[in-house]
Amino acid sequence: MVKKELARLAVEVNKASFSYNNIKAIDELSLQVPSGISFGLLGPNGAGKTTLIRLLVGLLKPKSGSVRILGKTPSRKTAHLIGYMPQLHSLYTELSVIQNVDFFARVYQLTDKHKRAQRVEDAIRLVDMWQRHKDPVLKLSGGMKQRVSLACAIVHNPPLLFLDEPTVGLDPELRVTFWEHFATLTKQGITLVISSHTMDDAAHCDRLAFMRDGKVIAQGTPSELQQATGKPGATLEDAFLYFIHREDRSDS
């Protein structure tokens, strides 16, 4: 029973802390993300969202506490289970769209040539970039690069996807398109952990964690968080401010 419960948790963080040269980026943070949903990490710049994602993908190790993904400690052995879209485009600009996506497919050990070619095409089509698949990344707009970056993260069909500020710098229309892509992925059973600092993004997530100063100050579904303010018609922005003020009051 306990094992089944653990398997249902895509992410489990237990009192994890991490510091950069004595500056606490993550402060005894605890978090649970159930499988198969889109989970938003919301907070201002410097809240610790990127550091938390780096801990979850295994780029950093917590100084204390524990981090588990799909029931395992993040390492190179679990790398094939996750997809990671960093904040930067993280693409080889001289190479074409298809060369970039194919490279990451190879890195994730999709060895069968035909299956790999199909996966690469599927991933590029999912982000609506097939019409430009032969173009070098250098010639693409910022939004298009974001889409290719997403294709690189999903090409090996991972059950868990970490997206660090995937919609930053996108125009409103493309932002909607991105959320449509994310909805398609969650329908396929993939768990999405998405960091953002805009409340527009928050409304699209199944569950949210509000972050501030390396801590989770509240978590729940968007409507639960809105209702917690006690004000009818409260927006997620109102909810975020409510929890910040509550945290400040409890600190003082």
Binding site: R76, Y84, S90, L91, Y92, V107
Partner: peptide, 14 residues
Amino acid sequence: SQGTMERLMASPVS
């Protein structure tokens, strides 16, 4: 600087 190393280090590549 392009962030591809970060992506590689999060992958199964050693």
